[in-house]
Design a protein around this nucleic acid. Structure first.
Length: 883
DNA sequence: TCCGTCACG
DNA sequence: ACGTACGTGACGGAT
């Protein structure tokens, strides 16, 4: 390796390459300020590869100075006709330059010259000065600079794929010397630089001519030796063009640059600058690659371990506000072990890994005092955790997790460090960074753990005002204060209450289902003529489509599709397929619901305690995990039996359930202000029948057959999902053209719905987000994407989210009012579950009559819409029996 | 850890 | 031409 190694990069070319290589993901690469970062990211990737390969002592990135250069003076059409640089790329240039500064690499541009010329001039000087030079570009023209000492690396495949050209390689692949690239181009022209070369001469002919004659000049001196009459005529006609083009194609190797090679020493990364830059760009990957201990760059933090002395100080100075963090080792705060806590009181931080300290009156008194406000991260987790210790948390003001989720449902996380980083606070790390990930995860030493806790408190504290002010700017304070935050505690109590699952019922089912499964399995083996794993889509595909030669109707990325819709089409003709369907159904019930649920039953109280995730979905719905109680089977009789195991926690109690009918369509009728649809709900018509009457042009709902109603119902669903003819056709089995007709007819009949759909997509394009009736936001960065798929998906989401999200808003309000109503009416009944449009309670038999009136009343008056809400109730001895 | 599949609204 | 219905979680198998 030479002593002096120079890396020269064509900045413009690499930025363009990187941008278009990542064009499909351009909207995924944005930072939390909405700046596009794809080209910056790609550029930096390339830089890492080249720095590693070249290990330069000197480096420079050259940029084009502007539109006019000495070439445009020679030929006004030079590079004209190019598309305007997209704004998403334009905004990235200044950041690339910032990044290069942070990486210790100089940049240079020169009026009237292109980056090529700067590089050409420097590489020539470098050759003379004994440097080993590597030129990096996306432009093949620069191969003309190859020499004994200069290699040209062309990035071609995406951003990381690079081909290295040296003199030999140019000779090998092209059959000419690097300097002859200029001659080659002057005959063939360059479409992207917009000069034509000689008419009728392309890559191949030009190369042949240059090989034969060495240069353009020599060619024209021996024109008579050119074979082909037409070719000779063209060469004569375009002689002037050819010589002009040679001037255009030649990189100027003596440009009047004002920099010296000796001043281009590569300095290496300026770590502080680079860390800040990566943070600003949200480049998590590059940050983690920096191989430094992030905590070292953080400011020192003071804290003390709780002891009897400072407990005394605490009790002597009662604060009005504290910040609190409860450490639990794991996600399941119902059962996972405590690892400590931290509390910030009057600017002092106290920590402890002795969880019993929480029950000391000085601390417990603060947590339970409803005059002292608490600032936390994840109030539900904290509330449930403290409840396990017999402590009743009161008066929470900030839940950083919840507030952050409401501000932006994207890029949210359950990790305090990550959330803080999203809001530009970097004085705290993520749990993954401190504890390690996966198998390597380990609670660290006391010092590290305490410091981490202390930093968490500071993060919550530092971000408090900022997040509240952002909520205020978004008109979301009401949503936060009056819906989501109080709901957190309703959910906490529902989770803590849990629901009893009778394991005997499940065990009984288990043995019956296992027996049936074995029978079906044997049957399938017989029909297949071999034993295999039926649960493996890969093996099943091989048996069905290769061994038994069934027709292949659909494929997945990895092989044959064996999804239900495919198997259902095949089932009538092939008995084995029906058996597979039966096997799948039973296996699902057995593994997920019987055996899965059994694992989640708490041995002491025989209950399952789900966790509702309040800060996960993009629409505002809840989700439920460990176990998921929002997808317990109901549609098939076989699966529905699972619900027999869900029973009340007391003798002579019953399960009571109320659900909203067509809540999403009612929300649509209301927010679209469509009078036709509203009338149908106001008159309590059968909405799907009315839709059928309208789209099939019948005069009366009584003419609607069940089949027509079914189709209309599918259209109504489609509308809510942000319909497309393709989607509707695929999901209903009707033809795409019929689907199209139905949709058109639908929009004619419900014109304001059509209006709503158009307006909401436009609104998303203008604002970048859509909102629910309670100002819950969903940002849709892909709405202006150039990628059809991403853009259409965002448009459908824009149509659906306000509907699904407003329905979620409504039931959340109903839950708040319901908890209050139960209390006000002194009922023993308990709200246990929420399944999106349904609330499930357990109650003494004698309260059922009261509930049958109270619950629907509370639910249908939760909010005032332009249409009535409709609620239906059921009850019975278990969740299966409810009628 | 990702994918295909399937359970729910 | 493009190639999609919206929102979730859990399981087993393949990688």
């Amino acid at each position: 390796m030479a002593e002096k190694r120079l890396l020269l990069i064509d900045g413009n070319s690499i930025i363009y390459k990187a941008f278009y290589a990542l064009i499909k993901q351009v909207e995924r690469f944005t930072n939390n300020k909405g700046v596009h970062t794809s080209a910056i990211y790609g550029f930096n990737n390339m830089l890492d590869i080249m720095l590693d390969k070249v290990n330069p002592t000197h480096a420079l990135v050259a940029f084009d100075a502007g539109k006019t250069t000495f070439r445009t003076k020679m030929y006004s059409g030079y590079k004209s006709g190019r598309h305007k640089t997209p704004d998403e790329l334009l905004e990235q240039f200044k950041y690339v330059k910032q990044m290069l500064d942070a990486r210790g690499i100089k940049t240079y541009e020169l009026d009237n010259y292109e980056a090529d010329d700067i590089i050409g001039t420097l590489s020539k000087k470098a050759d003379e000065a004994g440097f080993e030079t590597t030129v990096v570009t996306g432009d093949n023209d620069l191969t003309q600079l190859c020499s004994d000492k200069t290699t040209v690396s062309i990035s071609n495949r995406g951003v990381s794929g690079v081909t290295h050209y040296d003199t030999d390689y140019v000779k090998e692949t092209m059959g000419i010397k690097p300097s002859q690239i200029i001659d080659w181009k002057s005959l063939k022209g360059d479409a992207s630089d917009n000069y034509p070369g000689v008419q009728g001469v392309g890559d191949k002919t030009s190369l042949k001519l240059i090989k034969q004659f060495d240069s353009v000049e020599n060619l024209y001196n021996h024109l008579d030796e050119v074979s082909g009459k037409k070719l000779k005529e063209h060469l004569i006609d375009d002689k002037e063009e050819a010589f002009l083009d040679k001037k255009l194609a030649r990189i100027d190797r003596d440009a009047p640059i004002e920099i010296e090679l000796d001043n281009l020493n590569y300095l290496g990364d300026d770590r502080d600058k680079l860390v800040n830059f990566y943070r600003e760009m949200n480049f998590r990957k590059f940050l983690s690659q920096m191989d430094f201990d992030e905590s070292e760059s953080m400011k020192k933090i003071k804290y003390s371990e709780i002891n009897n002395d400072n407990l005394k100080v605490i009790s002597d100075n009662v604060p009005s506000e504290v910040t609190f963090y409860l450490g639990i080792d794991g996600e399941n705060y119902h059962i996972d072990p405590f690892i400590g806590f931290a509390i910030r009181i009057n600017e002092s931080i106290y920590v402890s890994d002795n969880i019993d300290m929480l029950n000391r009156p000085e601390i417990k008194g603060i947590l339970e005092n409803d005059k002292i406000t608490k600032n936390l991260f994840d109030a539900k987790r904290t509330y449930v955790g403290l409840n396990r210790l017999g402590i009743s948390l009161k008066n929470v003001r900030l839940d950083l997790l919840l507030a952050s989720y409401l501000l932006n449902t994207n890029d949210n996380s359950n990790d305090l460090g990550k959330v803080a980083n999203e809001h530009d606070y970097f004085e705290v790390q993520s749990d993954d960074d401190v504890y390690g990930k996966g198998a390597k995860r380990k609670i660290p030493s006391e010092d590290k753990l305490f410091e981490h806790f202390a930093r968490k408190l500071m993060a919550i504290n530092s971000l408090k005002d900022k997040l509240f002010s952002e909520l205020k700017d978004n008109n979301q304070l009401d949503l936060y204060n009056n819906v989501e935050l109080p709901l957190t505690f309703v959910l906490s109590r529902m989770e803590i209450a849990g629901i009893v699952v009778d394991s005997d019922v499940l065990k009984e089912m288990s043995s019956k289902l296992t027996e049936r499964l074995n029978e079906i399995q044997q049957k399938i083996y017989n029909e297949a003529g071999t034993e295999f794993n039926i649960a493996s889509p890969k093996q099943l595909g091989e048996i069905l489509f290769e061994k038994l030669h069934l027709p292949i109707l659909k494929k997945t990325k990895t092989g044959y599709s064996t999804a239900v819709d495919v198997l259902e089409k095949l089932a009538p003709d092939y008995p084995i397929v029906q058996s597979v369907l039966d096997y799948r159904q039973i296996n699902k019930i057995l593994s997920t619901y019987v055996e899965g649920l059994l694992k989640d039953i708490h041995p002491n109280d025989h209950k399952v305690h789900t966790r509702y995730l309040q800060t996960l979905t993009q629409t505002g719905r809840l989700s439920s995990v460990d176990p998921n109680l929002q997808n317990i089977p109901v549609r098939t009789e076989e699966g529905r039996k699972i619900r027999q195991a869900f029973v009340p926690s007391h003798k002579d109690w019953e399960i009571f359930s109320s659900d909203y009918s067509q809540i999403e369509l009612r929300v649509l009728a209301s927010i679209s202000n469509d009078k036709n649809m509203q009338d149908e709900f106001i008159h309590n018509d059968d909405i799907h029948a009315s839709t059928a009457r309208r789209i099939f042009g019948l005069s009366n709902n009584s003419e609607v057959t069940p089949e027509l109603r079914r189709q209309a119902k599918a259209v109504n669903f489609g509308i809510v999902y942000g319909i497309s003819d393709f989607g509707l056709a695929r999901n209903t089995g009707i033809s795409r053209s019929d689907a199209k007709k139905f949709i058109e007819k639908y929009f004619n009949e419900y014109p304001s719905v059509k209006n709503y759909m158009d307006n909401i997509v436009q609104k998303a394009k203008n604002n970048g987000y859509v909102e629910t009736i309670l100002n819950r936001r969903r940002y849709l960065p892909d709405i202006n994407s150039r990628n059809f798929h991403q853009r259409s998906f965002a448009a459908r989401t824009a149509m659906n989210s306000p509907i699904q999200g407003s329905a979620a808003d409504i039931i959340k309000i109903a839950m708040l009012k319901m908890e209050k109503a139960l209390k006000d009416n002194h009922l023993k009944a308990k709200m246990l579950l929420q399944v999106h449009d349904e609330l499930i309670f357990e109650a003494p038999k004698e309260e059922i009559k009261t509930l049958s009136k109270l619950v629907p009343k509370v639910m249908d008056s939760a909010v005032k819409l332009q249409v009535p809400l409709n609620v239906k109730s059921h009850y019975g001895s278990n969740w299966y029996n409810i009628k």
